[in-house]
Design a protein around this nucleic acid. Sequence first.
DNA 1: ACTTAATTGGATGTTGACATCCAATTAAGC
DNA 2: GCTTAATTGGATGTCAACATCCAATTAAGT
Lengths: 153, 153
Amino acid sequence: MFSQTVEYALRAVCHLAFIAPNSCTTEEIATGTKVPLAYLSKVLQGLAKAGVVRSQRGIGGGMSLIKRPDELTILEVVNAVDPIQRIRTCPLGLSTHGVKLCPLHRRLDNALKGVEEAFGGTTLAEVIAEPSESIPLCEFPGKSPIKNGPSAD
Amino acid sequence: MFSQTVEYALRAVCHLAFIAPNSCTTEEIATGTKVPLAYLSKVLQGLAKAGVVRSQRGIGGGMSLIKRPDELTILEVVNAVDPIQRIRTCPLGLSTHGVKLCPLHRRLDNALKGVEEAFGGTTLAEVIAEPSESIPLCEFPGKSPIKNGPSAD
DNA sequence: ACTTAATTGGATGTTGACATCCAATTAAGC
DNA sequence: GCTTAATTGGATGTCAACATCCAATTAAGT
Protein backbone atom coordinates (compact mmCIF):
# COMPACT_ATOMS: atom_id res chain seq x y z
CA MET A 1 0.00 0.00 0.00
CA PHE A 2 2.94 2.27 0.52
CA SER A 3 4.98 2.79 -2.61
CA GLN A 4 8.43 1.39 -3.07
CA THR A 5 9.67 4.96 -3.25
CA VAL A 6 8.30 5.69 0.22
CA GLU A 7 10.01 2.60 1.58
CA TYR A 8 13.30 3.67 0.03
CA ALA A 9 12.99 7.26 1.23
CA LEU A 10 12.32 6.15 4.80
CA ARG A 11 15.26 3.80 4.79
CA ALA A 12 17.53 6.54 3.49
CA VAL A 13 16.32 9.12 5.98
CA CYS A 14 16.65 6.58 8.75
CA HIS A 15 20.24 6.00 7.76
CA LEU A 16 20.87 9.73 7.72
CA ALA A 17 19.21 10.09 11.13
CA PHE A 18 21.72 7.66 12.58
CA ILE A 19 24.65 9.81 11.52
CA ALA A 20 22.95 13.19 11.88
CA PRO A 21 24.03 15.92 11.77
CA ASN A 22 26.81 14.49 9.67
CA SER A 23 26.49 13.78 5.99
CA CYS A 24 27.32 10.78 3.90
CA THR A 25 27.47 9.71 0.34
CA THR A 26 24.51 8.42 -1.66
CA GLU A 27 26.52 5.32 -2.37
CA GLU A 28 26.99 4.64 1.32
CA ILE A 29 23.28 5.02 1.94
CA ALA A 30 22.54 2.71 -0.96
CA THR A 31 24.80 0.04 0.44
CA GLY A 32 23.57 0.44 3.99
CA THR A 33 19.90 0.38 3.08
CA LYS A 34 20.01 -2.07 0.18
CA VAL A 35 18.40 0.38 -2.18
CA PRO A 36 19.47 0.48 -5.85
CA LEU A 37 22.02 3.28 -6.06
CA ALA A 38 20.79 4.87 -9.29
CA TYR A 39 17.21 5.00 -8.13
CA LEU A 40 18.11 6.16 -4.65
CA SER A 41 19.83 9.18 -6.13
CA LYS A 42 16.52 10.15 -7.72
CA VAL A 43 14.65 9.63 -4.46
CA LEU A 44 17.17 11.77 -2.64
CA GLN A 45 16.82 14.47 -5.27
CA GLY A 46 13.15 14.51 -4.42
CA LEU A 47 13.87 14.74 -0.71
CA ALA A 48 16.27 17.57 -1.42
CA LYS A 49 13.70 19.50 -3.46
CA ALA A 50 11.20 19.00 -0.64
CA GLY A 51 13.64 20.40 1.88
CA VAL A 52 14.10 17.23 3.88
CA VAL A 53 17.75 16.65 3.02
CA ARG A 54 20.58 18.90 1.99
CA SER A 55 22.88 17.88 -0.85
CA GLN A 56 26.46 18.90 -1.24
CA ARG A 57 28.42 18.19 -4.38
CA GLY A 58 32.09 17.52 -4.76
CA ILE A 59 34.69 15.90 -2.60
CA GLY A 60 33.55 15.48 0.98
CA GLY A 61 30.01 16.17 -0.11
CA GLY A 62 26.97 13.97 0.25
CA MET A 63 23.57 14.01 1.83
CA SER A 64 22.48 15.15 5.27
CA LEU A 65 19.27 15.88 7.11
CA ILE A 66 18.14 19.47 7.26
CA LYS A 67 16.12 19.04 10.45
CA ARG A 68 17.19 17.27 13.59
CA PRO A 69 15.83 13.72 13.81
CA ASP A 70 13.63 14.72 16.74
CA GLU A 71 12.09 17.45 14.62
CA LEU A 72 11.46 15.32 11.54
CA THR A 73 8.39 13.12 11.33
CA ILE A 74 7.79 10.06 9.20
CA LEU A 75 4.90 11.96 7.65
CA GLU A 76 7.14 14.71 6.37
CA VAL A 77 9.32 12.16 4.61
CA VAL A 78 6.36 10.30 3.14
CA ASN A 79 4.70 13.48 1.94
CA ALA A 80 7.94 14.65 0.38
CA VAL A 81 8.11 11.75 -2.05
CA ASP A 82 4.60 10.38 -2.32
CA PRO A 83 2.06 12.53 -0.51
CA ILE A 84 -0.81 10.92 1.35
CA GLN A 85 -3.84 12.08 -0.58
CA ARG A 86 -6.72 12.61 1.80
CA ILE A 87 -10.18 12.42 0.25
CA ARG A 88 -11.52 15.94 0.40
CA THR A 89 -14.27 15.90 -2.18
CA CYS A 90 -16.53 13.23 -3.58
CA PRO A 91 -14.52 11.03 -5.99
CA LEU A 92 -17.64 10.56 -8.11
CA GLY A 93 -17.79 14.27 -8.63
CA LEU A 94 -21.27 14.43 -7.16
CA SER A 95 -21.61 18.14 -6.61
CA THR A 96 -24.31 17.75 -3.99
CA HIS A 97 -21.96 15.80 -1.77
CA GLY A 98 -19.65 18.76 -1.78
CA VAL A 99 -17.44 18.86 1.23
CA LYS A 100 -19.57 16.31 3.09
CA LEU A 101 -18.28 12.90 2.13
CA CYS A 102 -20.70 10.01 1.94
CA PRO A 103 -20.31 7.27 4.58
CA LEU A 104 -18.20 5.17 2.23
CA HIS A 105 -15.64 7.81 1.43
CA ARG A 106 -15.74 9.18 4.94
CA ARG A 107 -14.52 5.78 6.13
CA LEU A 108 -11.84 5.57 3.49
CA ASP A 109 -10.67 9.03 4.42
CA ASN A 110 -10.74 8.17 8.11
CA ALA A 111 -8.37 5.30 7.39
CA LEU A 112 -6.05 7.74 5.61
CA LYS A 113 -6.39 10.11 8.51
CA GLY A 114 -5.32 7.36 10.88
CA VAL A 115 -2.20 6.69 8.85
CA GLU A 116 -1.47 10.39 8.62
CA GLU A 117 -1.77 10.82 12.37
CA ALA A 118 0.35 7.77 13.11
CA PHE A 119 3.07 9.01 10.80
CA GLY A 120 2.77 12.61 11.89
CA GLY A 121 3.17 11.60 15.50
CA THR A 122 6.41 9.75 15.09
CA THR A 123 9.78 11.39 14.72
CA LEU A 124 12.83 9.80 13.19
CA ALA A 125 14.53 10.15 16.56
CA GLU A 126 11.91 7.93 18.12
CA VAL A 127 12.34 5.35 15.38
CA ILE A 128 16.07 5.06 15.70
CA ALA A 129 16.13 5.29 19.49
CA GLU A 130 13.42 2.75 20.26
CA PRO A 131 14.76 -0.22 22.17
CA SER A 132 14.16 -3.33 20.12
CA GLU A 133 15.77 -6.58 19.27
CA SER A 134 16.03 -5.32 15.73
CA ILE A 135 17.74 -2.07 14.97
CA PRO A 136 16.50 -0.28 11.86
CA LEU A 137 18.57 -1.20 8.81
CA CYS A 138 20.99 -3.15 10.94
CA GLU A 139 21.82 -6.77 10.37
CA PHE A 140 23.18 -7.41 13.82
CA PRO A 141 21.33 -6.81 17.08
CA GLY A 142 23.03 -4.42 19.43
CA LYS A 143 25.23 -2.87 16.80
CA SER A 144 24.85 0.40 14.97
CA PRO A 145 23.97 0.01 11.32
CA ILE A 146 26.45 2.73 10.55
CA LYS A 147 30.01 1.79 9.75
CA ASN A 148 32.07 2.30 12.91
CA GLY A 149 29.10 4.00 14.46
CA PRO A 150 28.33 7.72 14.54
CA SER A 151 31.34 9.95 14.90
CA ALA A 152 32.05 13.57 14.35
CA ASP A 153 35.01 12.77 12.13
CA MET B 1 -2.96 5.19 -1.38
CA PHE B 2 -5.87 2.93 -2.21
CA SER B 3 -5.84 1.77 -5.79
CA GLN B 4 -8.38 2.89 -8.31
CA THR B 5 -9.51 -0.71 -8.54
CA VAL B 6 -10.33 -0.76 -4.82
CA GLU B 7 -12.34 2.43 -5.19
CA TYR B 8 -14.29 0.94 -8.09
CA ALA B 9 -14.89 -2.36 -6.31
CA LEU B 10 -16.23 -0.62 -3.23
CA ARG B 11 -18.56 1.54 -5.26
CA ALA B 12 -19.86 -1.49 -7.11
CA VAL B 13 -20.39 -3.54 -3.97
CA CYS B 14 -22.04 -0.56 -2.32
CA HIS B 15 -24.45 -0.36 -5.22
CA LEU B 16 -25.17 -4.06 -4.95
CA ALA B 17 -25.70 -3.73 -1.20
CA PHE B 18 -28.43 -1.21 -1.81
CA ILE B 19 -30.40 -3.67 -3.93
CA ALA B 20 -29.39 -6.85 -2.10
CA PRO B 21 -30.37 -9.59 -2.30
CA ASN B 22 -31.44 -8.69 -5.83
CA SER B 23 -29.09 -8.63 -8.77
CA CYS B 24 -28.45 -6.08 -11.44
CA THR B 25 -26.54 -5.64 -14.62
CA THR B 26 -22.91 -4.58 -14.83
CA GLU B 27 -24.04 -1.77 -17.06
CA GLU B 28 -26.42 -0.48 -14.44
CA ILE B 29 -23.71 -0.56 -11.81
CA ALA B 30 -21.34 1.24 -14.16
CA THR B 31 -23.85 4.00 -14.74
CA GLY B 32 -24.82 4.28 -11.09
CA THR B 33 -21.28 4.38 -9.81
CA LYS B 34 -19.63 6.29 -12.67
CA VAL B 35 -17.11 3.52 -13.26
CA PRO B 36 -15.97 2.72 -16.84
CA LEU B 37 -18.13 -0.19 -17.94
CA ALA B 38 -15.40 -2.26 -19.61
CA TYR B 39 -13.09 -2.00 -16.66
CA LEU B 40 -15.82 -2.56 -14.13
CA SER B 41 -16.60 -5.88 -15.77
CA LYS B 42 -13.02 -6.96 -15.05
CA VAL B 43 -13.23 -5.79 -11.47
CA LEU B 44 -16.47 -7.69 -10.99
CA GLN B 45 -14.87 -10.79 -12.47
CA GLY B 46 -12.28 -10.49 -9.75
CA LEU B 47 -14.93 -10.10 -7.08
CA ALA B 48 -16.71 -13.14 -8.50
CA LYS B 49 -13.54 -15.25 -8.39
CA ALA B 50 -13.00 -14.14 -4.81
CA GLY B 51 -16.50 -15.21 -3.86
CA VAL B 52 -17.81 -11.75 -3.05
CA VAL B 53 -20.34 -11.54 -5.85
CA ARG B 54 -22.25 -14.06 -7.89
CA SER B 55 -22.53 -13.65 -11.64
CA GLN B 56 -25.36 -14.90 -13.76
CA ARG B 57 -25.23 -14.85 -17.52
CA GLY B 58 -28.02 -14.43 -19.99
CA ILE B 59 -31.31 -12.59 -19.92
CA GLY B 60 -32.30 -11.48 -16.45
CA GLY B 61 -28.80 -12.19 -15.26
CA GLY B 62 -26.33 -9.82 -13.67
CA MET B 63 -24.38 -9.43 -10.48
CA SER B 64 -25.46 -9.89 -6.90
CA LEU B 65 -23.82 -10.11 -3.49
CA ILE B 66 -23.18 -13.56 -2.12
CA LYS B 67 -23.24 -12.49 1.53
CA ARG B 68 -25.78 -10.27 3.16
CA PRO B 69 -24.56 -6.66 3.48
CA ASP B 70 -24.41 -7.03 7.26
CA GLU B 71 -22.09 -10.00 6.84
CA LEU B 72 -19.76 -8.40 4.33
CA THR B 73 -16.96 -6.12 5.46
CA ILE B 74 -15.11 -3.47 3.54
CA LEU B 75 -11.96 -5.45 4.20
CA GLU B 76 -13.25 -8.49 2.38
CA VAL B 77 -13.97 -6.40 -0.68
CA VAL B 78 -10.60 -4.68 -0.58
CA ASN B 79 -8.72 -7.91 -0.08
CA ALA B 80 -10.62 -9.51 -2.95
CA VAL B 81 -9.26 -7.09 -5.52
CA ASP B 82 -6.11 -5.60 -4.03
CA PRO B 83 -5.10 -7.29 -0.79
CA ILE B 84 -3.66 -5.21 2.02
CA GLN B 85 -0.14 -6.53 2.34
CA ARG B 86 0.92 -6.49 5.94
CA ILE B 87 4.67 -6.39 6.55
CA ARG B 88 5.53 -9.76 8.01
CA THR B 89 9.24 -10.02 7.42
CA CYS B 90 12.05 -7.51 7.08
CA PRO B 91 11.82 -5.88 3.62
CA LEU B 92 15.60 -5.62 3.54
CA GLY B 93 15.83 -9.37 3.85
CA LEU B 94 17.91 -9.06 6.98
CA SER B 95 17.72 -12.58 8.29
CA THR B 96 18.55 -11.59 11.84
CA HIS B 97 15.45 -9.45 12.00
CA GLY B 98 13.37 -12.49 11.25
CA VAL B 99 9.85 -12.17 12.48
CA LYS B 100 10.72 -9.23 14.71
CA LEU B 101 10.35 -6.11 12.64
CA CYS B 102 12.62 -3.17 13.32
CA PRO B 103 10.98 -0.05 14.78
CA LEU B 104 10.63 1.50 11.33
CA HIS B 105 8.82 -1.38 9.72
CA ARG B 106 6.86 -2.09 12.88
CA ARG B 107 5.39 1.37 12.58
CA LEU B 108 4.61 1.00 8.92
CA ASP B 109 2.95 -2.31 9.62
CA ASN B 110 1.02 -0.82 12.52
CA ALA B 111 -0.41 1.74 10.14
CA LEU B 112 -1.48 -1.08 7.83
CA LYS B 113 -2.94 -2.89 10.80
CA GLY B 114 -4.98 0.16 11.67
CA VAL B 115 -6.43 0.30 8.18
CA GLU B 116 -7.10 -3.40 8.23
CA GLU B 117 -8.94 -3.15 11.53
CA ALA B 118 -10.96 -0.15 10.45
CA PHE B 119 -12.02 -1.91 7.26
CA GLY B 120 -12.57 -5.24 8.94
CA GLY B 121 -14.84 -3.66 11.50
CA THR B 122 -17.21 -2.07 9.06
CA THR B 123 -19.91 -3.92 7.17
CA LEU B 124 -21.51 -2.77 3.96
CA ALA B 125 -24.80 -2.62 5.82
CA GLU B 126 -23.35 -0.02 8.17
CA VAL B 127 -22.06 2.01 5.26
CA ILE B 128 -25.34 2.18 3.40
CA ALA B 129 -27.48 2.60 6.49
CA GLU B 130 -25.53 5.34 8.18
CA PRO B 131 -27.53 8.53 8.47
CA SER B 132 -25.71 11.27 6.62
CA GLU B 133 -26.42 14.25 4.47
CA SER B 134 -24.75 12.38 1.65
CA ILE B 135 -25.92 8.96 0.63
CA PRO B 136 -23.25 6.72 -0.92
CA LEU B 137 -23.23 7.02 -4.69
CA CYS B 138 -26.31 9.17 -4.62
CA GLU B 139 -26.51 12.58 -6.16
CA PHE B 140 -29.52 13.76 -4.21
CA PRO B 141 -29.80 13.81 -0.41
CA GLY B 142 -32.66 11.81 0.96
CA LYS B 143 -33.12 9.71 -2.13
CA SER B 144 -31.96 6.20 -2.87
CA PRO B 145 -29.14 6.00 -5.42
CA ILE B 146 -30.95 3.06 -6.95
CA LYS B 147 -33.41 3.65 -9.74
CA ASN B 148 -36.91 3.63 -8.19
CA GLY B 149 -35.40 2.38 -4.98
CA PRO B 150 -35.02 -1.20 -3.83
CA SER B 151 -37.83 -3.50 -4.81
CA ALA B 152 -38.32 -7.21 -5.01
CA ASP B 153 -39.50 -6.99 -8.58
C1' DA C 1 45.06 24.48 -13.11
C1' DC C 2 44.51 19.64 -12.44
C1' DT C 3 42.61 15.64 -10.40
C1' DT C 4 39.29 13.43 -7.88
C1' DA C 5 34.83 12.80 -5.60
C1' DA C 6 30.44 13.74 -5.53
C1' DT C 7 25.56 15.23 -7.10
C1' DT C 8 22.51 16.56 -11.13
C1' DG C 9 19.78 16.11 -15.15
C1' DG C 10 18.38 13.87 -19.23
C1' DA C 11 17.57 9.86 -21.96
C1' DT C 12 16.03 5.45 -21.92
C1' DG C 13 14.25 0.81 -20.64
C1' DT C 14 10.84 -2.31 -18.14
C1' DT C 15 6.77 -3.62 -15.97
C1' DG C 16 2.26 -3.58 -13.96
C1' DA C 17 -2.10 -0.85 -13.30
C1' DC C 18 -5.69 1.02 -15.68
C1' DA C 19 -8.57 0.88 -19.59
C1' DT C 20 -10.90 -0.53 -24.02
C1' DC C 21 -12.74 -3.55 -27.57
C1' DC C 22 -14.74 -7.60 -29.43
C1' DA C 23 -15.76 -12.40 -30.37
C1' DA C 24 -17.32 -16.39 -27.73
C1' DT C 25 -20.29 -18.23 -24.41
C1' DT C 26 -24.38 -18.75 -21.56
C1' DA C 27 -29.20 -18.56 -20.34
C1' DA C 28 -34.11 -16.89 -20.57
C1' DG C 29 -38.32 -16.44 -23.18
C1' DC C 30 -41.00 -16.99 -27.03
C1' DG D 1 -34.45 -23.54 -32.14
C1' DC D 2 -34.20 -18.56 -32.62
C1' DT D 3 -33.53 -14.16 -30.66
C1' DT D 4 -32.02 -11.34 -27.20
C1' DA D 5 -29.54 -10.08 -23.00
C1' DA D 6 -25.99 -10.76 -20.33
C1' DT D 7 -21.15 -12.29 -18.65
C1' DT D 8 -16.47 -14.15 -20.04
C1' DG D 9 -11.95 -14.30 -21.88
C1' DG D 10 -8.39 -12.75 -24.83
C1' DA D 11 -5.97 -9.22 -27.31
C1' DT D 12 -4.52 -4.82 -27.19
C1' DG D 13 -3.37 0.07 -25.91
C1' DT D 14 -1.64 3.76 -22.64
C1' DC D 15 0.74 5.66 -18.96
C1' DA D 16 3.02 6.20 -14.60
C1' DA D 17 6.19 3.88 -11.27
C1' DC D 18 10.37 1.79 -10.91
C1' DA D 19 14.89 1.42 -12.54
C1' DT D 20 19.40 2.12 -15.07
C1' DC D 21 23.04 4.59 -17.45
C1' DC D 22 25.93 8.37 -18.61
C1' DA D 23 27.56 12.97 -19.62
C1' DA D 24 27.61 17.45 -17.32
C1' DT D 25 28.35 20.03 -13.30
C1' DT D 26 30.24 21.27 -8.88
C1' DA D 27 33.53 21.55 -5.19
C1' DA D 28 37.66 20.20 -2.38
C1' DG D 29 42.52 19.46 -2.13
C1' DT D 30 46.95 19.70 -3.93
